[in-house]
Design a binder for these strands. Sequence first.
DNA 1: GCGATCCTGGCC
DNA 2: GGCCAGGATCGC
Length: 273
Amino acid sequence: MPELPEVENVIRTVQAACGTTITQCRLSRVAPLVHTTASAIRRATDNATITAITRRAKYIVIHCASDTRLLIHLGMSGQLRLCATREEVAKHTHCRLTLDNHTELRYVDPRRFGIISLAHTHLADHPYIAKLGPEYDDPTLTAQMYIERMRRHSKLNIKAALLHQGIVPGLGNIYACEALYLAQVDPRRLVNTLSDEELTRLYQAMRTTLDQGIVSGGTTLKDYVNGLGHRGEMQTLLQVYDREGKRTLDGRADVIKIVQNGRSTWFAPDVQR
DNA sequence: GCGATCCTGGCC
DNA sequence: GGCCAGGATCGC
């Protein structure tokens, strides 16, 4: 479900949890924990005040006053919801953080591809965080730096490179297809066949696409909702994603679907070269 | 670098 | 019943 714009909208809509104190942490046995245990999470969150909720790539970071941070990745089907305590608990709710203001943060994930983890010292030292490239909107990430990072993976097709979270994280299947359309680049091309000019177009396109996704509240294809349960609007603006056999949204060209590295790619061969 | 794999649910 | 899905790790 969630790519960077969806995760950004989730963290923005759960900010009311900041300043509250966690009075209870309930983890189901099927919660997908990584690099930690249920007891470590209970210990870290017990009576902890939430000082901030931030995002790193597609990870949600819940900062506790105790200097520990709870890391949540939503995987394919995860949701983080800020609910009234009395609200009915949805199926596949794996973690409930009860807060001292009659609300709860609930992590729900039917497919269980997401993860919950813990970072004690520097966030950047966490094994999963350490592998990530710089944020797409990092002011120090110039087009030139982006090109250099891309060229370290010369043998990848450009679609796979856009999905590679170690280069610049945040794009998933939807926004990668959309960025390639905006930049007018054929997803099948290898990085080492792209000119600096084409990579610069992709640098700009991925930034524009992610910004647009954030501003429009994320893409609700099926079940994405933000932390308050509201759907996004970006699905009404997608040019190519899931439009096999149709025209692009702007009517400029026909869309076809191919499979790359096991994932569907939609693109318009007449305008993506 | 690439394919298999984790898992549930919706759709054909 | 089989296929597909917004992700990413792991082993080869």
